[in-house]
């Protein structure tokens, strides 16, 4: 089985985010990036499929700060190849990313065999112009389904039976012919941990393959007027003090409402 996994770096929202001087993009000076969380699940699901059915996992990503470490981590976890598109891709939206990826895959037919599954995170926190997976499926003319949390691959019938989440814990089972693009919400198992030593050894023994791709005229398509931090509604009354004072105050609040 040929598994293509598209990965992307996104701002780590645990950190403070600042708007840049243009007022329309994030200030990149202190920005810390991490692998998009649903992409991490897409990688895990790819590795689980490989373990079960054999084949190769190729990860694809657009150059970004701290990407190399994420790619070497993917290799250390069990991916076979890592390809990095070189260039400045800040502000790249889903539709343009899909266009670049589909042209690249089409010009590399060995990556687009009849038993290909393309996995990527179902969504990312910066998908303002739309998620990558449906855009890519459209460009390639492949079937698509998103919010996937489980995949049963049937090599005989060249089909996958996938689980999609709706709401309230309700899920649906869908049948998808291969090749297909799947947007992964969560892998069947939590993403595996890989020790730093293994990542270091991957850095020594394996290579990230750089690829140049033609740069499109525009990476994003939406006219952003302004980017800003939401005003804190001032709704929450913040309770301060020592931890035990805080605990005391919380119990007081709960008692008043007969909740304690």
């Amino acid at each position: 089985m040929n598994i293509i996994t598209c990965l992307k770096m996104v701002p780590d929202v645990v950190e403070e985010l600042e708007v840049g001087p243009d007022g329309k993009s994030l200030d990149t000076q202190w920005l810390r990036l991490r692998l998009s969380e649903p992409d991490e699940h897409a990688l895990e699901q790819s590795l689980l499929l490989k373990e079960k059915h054999g084949g190769k996992v190729t990860v694809l990503a657009f150059e970004a700060p701290e990407l190399e470490e994420a790619l070497f981590t993917a290799l250390a976890k069990g991916a076979d190849r890592a390809i990095k598109f070189t260039g400045d891709f800040s502000g790249l939206g889903g539709p343009v990313a899909a266009q670049i990826l589909s042209s690249f895959l089409r010009s590399n037919p060995q990556l687009l065999t009849a038993d290909t599954l393309i996995l990527t995170g179902s969504q990312a926190i910066d998908d303002l112009e739309g998620e990558l997976s449906p855009c890519l499926a459209e460009k390639l003319g492949f079937p698509f389904i998103g919010v996937v949390t489980g995949i049963e691959f049937d090599p005989e019938r060249k089909k996958a039976v996938v689980l999609k989440e709706f709401a309230g814990g309700l899920r649906g089972e869908f049948e998808v012919p291969i090749p297909a693009v799947l947007g992964i919400q969560a892998a069947e198992k939590p993403p595996r941990y890989v020790p730093v030593a293994k990542v270091r050894s991957a850095m020594k023994s394996m290579k990230i393959e750089p690829r140049e791709v033609p740069r499109p005229d525009s990476l994003g398509r939406l006219p952003v007027e302004q980017l800003y931090k939401p005003e804190v509604a001032g709704m929450a009354e913040m309770i301060e003090g020592s931890p035990s004072e805080i605990a005391g105050r919380l119990v007081e609040i709960l008692s008043k409402r007969a909740l304690a």
């Binding site: 539709p95 739309g130 997976s133 499926a137 459209e138 998103g146 398509r221």
Partner: peptide, 23 residues
Amino acid sequence: GTNIFLGVGPILSGRTEMPFVNF
């Protein structure tokens, strides 16, 4: 912007050339 509809916007946008705005 629900799980049921995830993907509809980008696909429709690609087919109609109308811009899509998420979230």
